[in-house]
Design a protein around this nucleic acid. Structure first.
Length: 421
DNA sequence: AAAATGATCAACCGCCCTTAG
DNA sequence: TCTAAGGGCGGTTGATCATTT
């Protein structure tokens, strides 16, 4: 299990009497990057305790936002972005440090399957966890487990193909094994969507890992030095709303997305088992979803001309808006829904979630009679039509609930039509 | 004991969107 | 309408520690 040691904390940075000196000099012997200096004289690299204090003192008074003002008003030699990052990832109150619990890991896997590499969105569902932490965790621990499974007998991933979409990525993959694995897990999406010749089995690796048993949670302070940072200041949880359509389109890439594709060059039978993994060896899986804006390029920071395979698949915005609301909702509420549903107290087919009416129907439309997520969804006429799912088709919260509530096997095998070793 | 390799994770980079002027 | 600045986010890097050879 993922562990966070205290080694770096033991290498505490000695406090300097000279404020400016400390800020300039940064820390010595810290884990991670050594401080550097940008052209404009701003510090780079690891933060020092003094820098943190300056940042927190400012935020205590002024709150978040206006990051660039911090530089001007405090003399802190950090760019606004760096300040924001430091705050969001380490100094913010209620940051949970330490091992990921089994539940957290499970949820990460499930949400990643739903959302892809939408780390901030995933982080929004794990209180106290940052997108960066989850991202690192995924790229290291979870991907490693996936690799372990692979060694147990899964077919080797053809990394050439996985990386073929981007030479940039390919070069990176050669350097870093964890990155390779991360591409594998991301590639899971690609297999369901594009021309890539990966086998679906390759992509399964990203989601069906043996569970760890260690779940001791720690609450450590930021790692770069001894526990001295306070937990004061404003609180601002990760905003999980999908803010723009292009991002949605390019980044919503997985399982659930497959529920809304325009099926191309595949028979309806392909949809019968979710993402039709049993056809994986044919490597011709192409589930294209019509872009709502064809001119929209990927928002994932790809260089122009790069193939972003995952961007070939997307969700209808309206649908995603509903989906987003689900994810922004307190999951405990879904338990309530579940109770209500199971006791038949949903006569008007509407469930209130976080103030809005969702669930059994949206906009007064009846939901599907049965819909187990995601496989059954794909069998529905709604989902297999050559159209994006319309918002007024409603979203079955029970489906999501059961999806998130399903067992590993359901997730990793049944839902994808594959078998787990 | 030393070198090589792998793992970890804080921080940076660059793209994109939003918004103010 | 255009432009620049601010901010958010995912991808990636690289320093350090741990483990293996």
């Amino acid at each position: 299990m993922h562990t966070i040691d205290n080694k770096s904390q033991e290498k505490a940075v000695p406090q300097s009497e000279d404020r400016e000196e400390a800020v300039r000099a940064g820390s010595e012997g810290e884990m991670g990057r050594k401080p550097g200096y940008s052209k404009d004289g701003l510090n780079k690299g690891a933060w020092t305790p003094l820098e943190d204090k300056m940042l927190m003192d400012y935020l205590k008074i002024h709150g978040e936002g206006k990051w660039s003002n911090i530089v001007r008003e405090t003399g802190l030699k950090r760019c606004g972005k760096s300040c924001r990052l430091r705050w969001m990832n380490y100094l913010r109150p209620n940051i949970k440090r330490g091992n990921f619990s089994d539940d957290e890991e499970d949820l990460i896997i499930r949400l990643h399957k739903l959302l892809g590499n939408r780390w901030s969105l995933i982080a929004g569902r794990l209180p106290g966890r940052t997108d960066n932490e989850i991202k690192n965790y995924w790229h290291t621990t979870i991907a490693k487990k996936a690799q372990h499974r692979q060694l147990l007998g899964q077919p080797k991933v053809d990394r050439k193909h996985i990386a073929s979409g981007s030479q940039k990525r390919a070069a990176s993959n050669l350097k870093n094994q964890s990155t390779i694995e991360s591409q594998c897990t991301t590639g899971m999406v690609a297999a369901t969507t594009t021309l890539q010749e990966n086998t679906a089995q390759d992509h399964q690796d990203g989601i069906a890992m043996p569970k760890s048993t260690n779940s001791d949670l720690q609450h450590d302070m930021p790692k770069t030095y001894e526990n001295e940072s306070s937990s004061k200041g404003s609180q601002n949880g990760a905003a999980s709303n999908f803010k723009n359509q292009s991002t949605i389109e390019s980044q919503c890439t997985i399982g659930v997305v497959a529920a809304t594709p325009t099926l191309q060059e595949n028979t309806a039978q392909d949809h019968q088992d979710g993402i039709a993994m049993e056809k994986s060896t044919s490597s011709n899986l192409q589930y294209h979803i019509p872009k709502t804006n064809e001119n929209e390029s990927s928002s994932k920071g790809l260089a122009s001309g790069e193939d972003d395979n995952s961007s070939n698949i997307m969700m209808d915005y309206d649908y995603m808006e509903d989906f987003s609301r689900i994810l922004d909702s307190d999951f405990t509420r879904f338990s309530d829904i579940h109770d209500i549903m199971s006791t038949g107290q949903h006569s008007n087919n509407t469930i209130e979630v976080n103030g809005d009416h969702h669930g059994v129907s949206i906009n007064g439309c009846k939901s599907r009679e049965t819909a187990e997520f995601p496989g059954k969804l794909l069998e529905s006429d709604h989902w297999s039509s050559n159209k994006c799912v319309q918002a007024d088709q409603g979203f079955d919260f029970m489906s999501l609930l059961s999806f998130l509530d399903s067992t590993d096997d359901e997730w990793t095998a049944d839902a994808l039509g594959t078998q787990i070793l």
